[in-house]
């Protein structure tokens, strides 16, 4: 029971991170119907930026943790947002309205480029950062000494994710930008005829998705403390799985999907085998697409003939 509880906490934390990345996939897919293959790399870049920022702050003598974390979050969101904007502008916008394959290939190329760019400028070795927040709260203790604990960091990750989730849902539901986004999702041509600046809306979608992936990058750097240039690939596929599982195009769906994937991965590793935890995630992707392609919260799509 205690072991189960601990895995639940770990799974939720992991799921929150996947969920944040998944939002980027789901928003972009919802609006322009493409898999932004380079999105996982944005998350990786977010992780690197946050690590660099922590080091800079450390060197500058800012050691008060809440301030440092806040600064790093803002910095990481800023830089990843710029990356998201630039990628869309350079690699995707000129291909809008082209064949369906072209943007996907372009995205794969972009993903390969970003991985190797970071490897080139930051080195291929695994980077380790000492933990920034290491305090834990012990929730329960088993007779044999096994402790169920939740760290401040895990609390922070879950709270921050929830807050961002609520914030972004409000943006989509209440602001003119959100309205423009939903309009573009329905019918891009019509939206532009009605005066929605489609280019700007799509750009902002990428910026928002990238900023959230940046936050996920900060979290993973603090949570695991080790990152390398390759982490974006797997996390990207899992987050995409989460987006599909939740129902592509749906924000709460992405979060729900992320949590599901995180929990499944945590329990699978705990009770079955660590080696095959990635297989579990991929198997879920395949099963969902085959049996419920609309996902948990997605709307059914009727094949237009």
């Amino acid at each position: 029971m205690e072991y189960f509880l601990q895995q639940l906490i770990n799974g939720l934390t992991l799921g929150a991170i996947y969920g944040l990345i998944a939002i980027g996939y789901t928003m972009v897919y919802g609006i322009i119907g493409m898999i932004n293959f380079a999105h996982g790399e944005i998350y990786m870049i977010g992780a690197f930026v946050s690590m660099i920022s922590f080091l800079v702050l450390g060197a500058a003598g800012i050691t008060w943790v809440p301030l440092a974390v806040a600064v790093v979050l803002v910095v990481a969101m800023l830089f990843t947002a710029v990356y998201g904007w630039t990628i869309e502008r350079i690699a995707y916008r000129p291909l809008r309205g082209s064949t369906r394959l072209a943007p996907l290939i372009s995205a794969i190329g972009m993903s390969i480029f970003l991985q190797n760019y970071v490897q080139l400028v930051q080195g291929a070795r695994v980077k380790a950062l000492p933990p920034v927040i290491s305090d834990v709260i012990v929730l329960a203790q088993r007779a044999d000494g096994f402790k169920v604990s939740i760290s401040y960091l895990q609390i922070m990750i879950i709270v921050l994710t929830t807050a961002l989730m609520i914030g972004f849902t409000q943006i989509i539901l209440r602001t003119p930008l959100g309205r423009a986004q939903r309009a573009c999702e329905q019918d891009m041509k019509m939206a532009s005829l009605l005066g929605v600046d489609v280019d700007r809306t799509i750009s902002l979608t990428f910026v928002m998705g990238a900023a959230l992936a940046g936050v996920a990058g900060v979290m993973v750097t603090m949570y695991y403390g080790v990152i390398d240039f390759y982490i974006g690939f797997l996390a990207g596929i899992k987050a995409f799985t989460a987006a599909v599982l939740g129902g592509i195009g749906s924000l709460p769906g992405a979060m729900l999907g992320g949590l599901t994937i995180g929990l499944i991965e945590a329990f699978w590793s705990a009770y079955f085998s660590v080696e095959y935890k990635d297989v579990a995630a991929f198997a879920i992707l395949v099963l969902v697409l085959i049996f419920r392609p609309t996902g948990l919260l997605g709307r059914p799509e009727i094949e237009k003939v």
């Binding site: 690699a91 072209a102 943007p103 372009s106 190329g109 972009m110 480029f113 760019y117 080139l120």
Partner: peptide, 15 residues
């Protein structure tokens, strides 16, 4: 620079 150039090449040819 191989893979770097490979990624760039893919994007450029698509564009």
């Amino acid at each position: 620079y191989r893979m770097l150039a490979f990624g760039v090449g893919m994007v450029l040819i698509m564009l």
